[in-house]
Structure formats: structure tokens, C-alpha cells
Design a protein around this nucleic acid. Sequence first.
DNA 1: AAGTGGTCTAGACCACTTT
DNA 2: AAGTGGTCTAGACCACTTC
Lengths: 274, 274
Amino acid sequence: MKKSWSMNQVPSNPNSNGAPNSNAGGAGNAASGTGSSPTFSPLYQQIKALITQSLQSGEWKPGELIPSEVELAGRYKVSQGTVRKAIDELAAENLVVRRQGKGTFVATHNEARAHFRFLKLMPDEGVSQHPDHQYVEVKRIRAAAEVARLLDLKSGDAVVYIKRVMSFDGVPTILEELWLPGQLFKGLTAERLAEYKGPMYGLFESEFGTRMIRATEKIRAVAADASAAEYLKVPEGTPLLCADRVSFTYGDKAVELRRGLYLTSSFHYQNELS
Amino acid sequence: MKKSWSMNQVPSNPNSNGAPNSNAGGAGNAASGTGSSPTFSPLYQQIKALITQSLQSGEWKPGELIPSEVELAGRYKVSQGTVRKAIDELAAENLVVRRQGKGTFVATHNEARAHFRFLKLMPDEGVSQHPDHQYVEVKRIRAAAEVARLLDLKSGDAVVYIKRVMSFDGVPTILEELWLPGQLFKGLTAERLAEYKGPMYGLFESEFGTRMIRATEKIRAVAADASAAEYLKVPEGTPLLCADRVSFTYGDKAVELRRGLYLTSSFHYQNELS
DNA sequence: AAGTGGTCTAGACCACTTT
DNA sequence: AAGTGGTCTAGACCACTTC
């Protein structure tokens, strides 16, 4: 562990023995002499990176309690306030969840509160019933060029392909196709998917150790082709909302491609601009 | 100003004279005896509310420098750290912008960095040229029931109605309709709109004193009707992305309704899920 | 009672900007 | 040199949860 901040923990009381920080009194950031770019980063960002590493490595698993702020402060030899600021940012990014009096927990998709973070389709009015999932196709294929490029694979690498229909109150509403790196999702079958209760990202995280952190979506309006029309039971040419998603796990690594076709006659894509 | 937090600014050194806080030594939050709900809020939230009031009242206008943290701490009789936390949240909500070494500024829509906060339509590849705006219709009408309800007006109240077409590289791409409370936008004409350089929200904020803070959008796929088809120069029935927006100013007050029809053949609605 | 996160203060130093 | 926001520390107390 390197800390590039220096000369800043010299409290008024002159009892700073016990090595309060590994580089106390060190040369400092000012990189005297060299013309290179020293690439600073604040201490709390370094602590944040270390905590993220522990999350990524599985030292603390989704749903589990992470060490207390006091304990982490001791481990990293920084003040509790610095750990707090690091965890504040991790909480803002939905990587951990704070619970007063209990502790800080690793965020998980197997929670009610996480259900609508990646599912932005809402019923126009009322509350949607639990959806039915029908898995049309689950197979391993070879990555086409475009899929390989987006998933950072080589053309022809193994990819899990999934096609499913989601219905609300018996009405087919979403037709989805997914592409996942075969390497990460060995043993993913239609049965595993169908029998799993809860969101698919919960299955991915608990059974395959891949946690989706964030995603980007490009949204368009398209006309239903013959295939989509059949699955969604609408006339060919019906306007559908098409969302192309790329999902990322730790380290901004793309690990899911998803194309969703949404029938928006009684549902809408809800977005908050702020 | 009321502060419901108490008994917490009693530093170790016993020199706490000069009334460091108006309720130092007060009865405290514990609401002993009464069974009512005292509705606490942390000091920094109260400070945040006070700063927001000053923003709303126009004491500090968009683009201007607000008082320094030290000065605000003195004004509100709290520590700089508490002011800092209040401003941190305001910055996270894009109400203010911090600039190291210079100060904290009131956020404004007349800035390059704000251009894409409410304009989520992106070209599929490359960079969009500056769009042309053609104002089809700008008139004052009476609010229909639905418009009145969403804008918190009475049916029949005056409303400014705007219809415009945005083209990129000469290609009509967006057809927008807006409804604004007539009370707030007196003197808004097609000429004022057409001659204004920069985003419309910049005009609203600098000329009409109404600043858009956040918005919600419901997005659907629809088929172009005869009118939309004509304006966008596409066949009737062409799939269009329809975004229904409600925008809010300070105090969560709705002050704009907007329906955008987007031609997404070479543009897409870009969204980040996190 | 003990442990946890949440709030608040006070003071130090750093990095950046302007005078 | 002076002023601003940015980082870091240390210590206090509060609210909530568990034992």
C-alpha cells in the first residue's frame, strides 16, 4: 500500500510515535525535481480502492457485513474519518449499504430495494404483479464480431445466449436477448434460470460470482419484426422500445450484453433526470 | 433559524462563551414527555435548507459566487465542516458548483457542462452539429384538465404552449411540445426563443427567473401520426420515441411539461444505470 | 453496556487561484 | 501573501441495534 499524501497528519499534541501513517515525514507529493506526473490521489481514494479490491476478490461477499469503520481505520492506519469518506462514496455508488447501529453491508441484487435499479419499465398505473419468465432459448454459441468487441472477447469465443419473454398478468411485454461471456457462466442452463427466485442479477452474483455494478443503455424506437411480433403477440410493425444495454462489473469490465424489446402500450420506461 | 440538534457543540476547552450555537445547553432533541413526533433533522440539513432558500430567493443568482464556507459558517454560527457537508449535498444535486481556489458558484444552464444534463439524445456515432431550432407555434392558451393537474394549476389557467422542430445537419429529428405556466413566463415569444443563443433552460433561468432543477421522464415507443410525420418528414406510422417530461424547480414545484418525439434512426436516447 | 454508523466541532496542512 | 475549497486527523456526543 502506498500513500502519496504526506506531512498532513501531524496533530498538535507531540505524541505522534506509533507510526500513525507509513509515510509520515516522508518526502511528500511535491515530486521535487522530476518533471514527470506523480499521479496523486487523496488518501480516502486509496482506501476506497483497497476496499473495492476486497469486494472484488470476494473477501466480503454480497449481503455480508464488512468490518467496522474503526476496524478498517486500524487496518489501514488512517483515521476513522478517512475510512468514512471512502465508504461514503462506495455507498453512493451502490457498492455497499450502510445500516445505522448494525454496520456496513456488501450490496446485493437479492434485495427488494435493488429490484428496480436495472428494471426501469413501470406499469402506467397501479403496481405490476410478479412477472412470469419464459425462457425461449438458452445455448452456448460463438461470439460474433460485434458481440466479441463489446464484451472484450475474441471473435468465436464461447458466449452464453439467452432469449426470454417476460409477461405481466399474462400479457407478454418484454422480449429480451442476452449475451454473456461463456468463461464466466459455465453451467448456466434454462433450468437454473427458470427455477431461480428473484432477479437474474441475483443468480449471477450468488451462483457465478459476477456482480453487475453499472450499465449503459441506448434506447430507440423500432418496429416489431416478424419474430418479435410473434413472441409479443402484436402485429408486425408495432412500435417497440428497444434498449441496448452493456453491463459492467468491478473494474469497468463489460460482462453482459442485453437487448430488450418493450411493448409500451401499458408500460413505460421511467427515468429521472437530475 | 431553529436548530434541533443539541448538546453537541461542547468542545473540550471550556471557553464556550460567545454563544457558539443558539441552542447550546438547550432542552435537546429527546422531546421528553410529549408523545408527538419532533421531526428532527441534522444541523447540516437545516443549513442546506437555508442555503437553498437563498438560492431560490435570488439572493445569489445563477453563475454567481456564493459566500465562502468560512463566511457561511460565521453567518449560521456553525463549524465550517457542517457548512461543507451541506454544500457537498447541494453540489451532488447540481445546485451549486465548487471550484477549488475560486469558490462555490450557483449552477447555471448557460454552461457547456450543463448542455447534456437534460438532452439525452445522442448521435449514434460522431458528434452532433449545433442543432437548428424552428419554432412552429408559440401561443398562450388555457390549460386543459390534464395539463393543469400536472402543473398544479386550475383548469383554464393561462399556459404558454410551444411547438418546435430541432434538426441536426438539416435533418428534422425532434418534435417537441411544451406547456409552461403563463404566470411565470409573461412575454415569452417565438422571437425571444429564436434569437436566444444557448439552451432554452438558460433563457428560462436568466430571463424569467425560473431554474429547472430536476425532471422525470416516461418514455414510450409510438407510431408517428399524420402531423408528426409531416414535421419530421417521415412516413406515417414510423416508430418514434416519445418522452413525456415533467420538470421541477426549487421546492419540487412542477413548472414545465414537455412531450418530445424523437426520430431514432441515427440518434439514440443515452442512459446510465448506476 | 457495548458496538455501530451519524453528526458536529476544531485545527492543521495541502492545492489552486488571485492579488 | 491571502483567500478558497480539499484533505486529514482527533475527539466528542447522538441514534440505533444487539447482547
